[in-house]
Amino acid sequence: MAESITDDRPRVRGRVVVAFVLTRLGGALFVLWAVATLTFFALRLIPGDPALAILGGPGSQASPEALEAVRREYGLDQPLFVQYLTQLWRLMMGDLGRSYSLNMDVAPLVGVQLGGTMQLAFLSLALAWLLALGLATWSTRGGKIARSIGSGLEIVAAALPHFWLATVLILLFSIWLGVLPPISTPGIAGLVLPVLTLAIPLAGFLGQVMRESLLTALESPFVLSARARGESERGVRLVHAIRHAALPAISLSGWAFGSLISGAVVVETIFARPGLGRTLLNAVTERDVPVVVGVVMIVAVVYILMTLLTDVASRLADPRLRAA
């Protein structure tokens, strides 16, 4: 069997880490460029005249002069390639263009909405983690029945659509019990239902993964060794098994964050909560292309950063990954 022995000389390790970070940053920049390019050209596929869309769509009966003015203002009279380069340049400068429908710059608009969505996503991720870990540890402690219940809960939770879960939670807590507001008000009370809505399905997914690796860890020889040293059942879980259960969940967090942002589209709409998701949905419905591009770019940046972070976190948590 091949053995992997990490080279522990600090200089070598340092170089490996730097190389890793540089490669990943390079990759991230590439992905951002490709996202911008892909969106730019994909949006050229929209049928109809963008100038007309800016002026309110086909129903607006804009005069040819007005159209011409809009074209000049938005640079639509330039050749496609020039437009593309201009857009790339602007993106690099942090200029996301002007909204068609709201008559304001996209960057500040999106920047304002980012905070709320981030708050929602981070809280939901944390709650999902706790729920999944709790369920996984509880259900693997008991006998067969607890395991079946645990896995059943996870499957059901993972199958819950956000829009329905939100509806049921609103019915339960706002309409019947009347303890929480049905729309997102400022403050903690208004956050509870949106966070629960996003966290529960995610906890179902994470729980399945965690339970699987928890069980694998509990069956592995190092747990037998620990027991043979006199470690208690609780010690085995706290000292050994939970770390192993957390590993895949850590590496899934980047993906989970992405799915939370996507879920925010629904949740922010239902709870009338300002945020990126709702902005995006409105922009899609209104066909406000610059806003859509702005949100997509921001989400891509956040998503890439999160994946990078979780990769680093995974490496920190699992020394075996560092060797590879």
Binding site: T39, L45, V299
Partner: peptide
């Protein structure tokens, strides 16, 4: 690389973009 780029449109985002077009 192409898949990596697509993954940067998490979840519904790709679907929304398609619907926009």
């Amino acid at each position: 690389r192409f898949l990596e780029v697509l993954f940067a449109f998490p979840g519904l985002l790709l679907a929304l973009l398609f619907i926009l077009i």
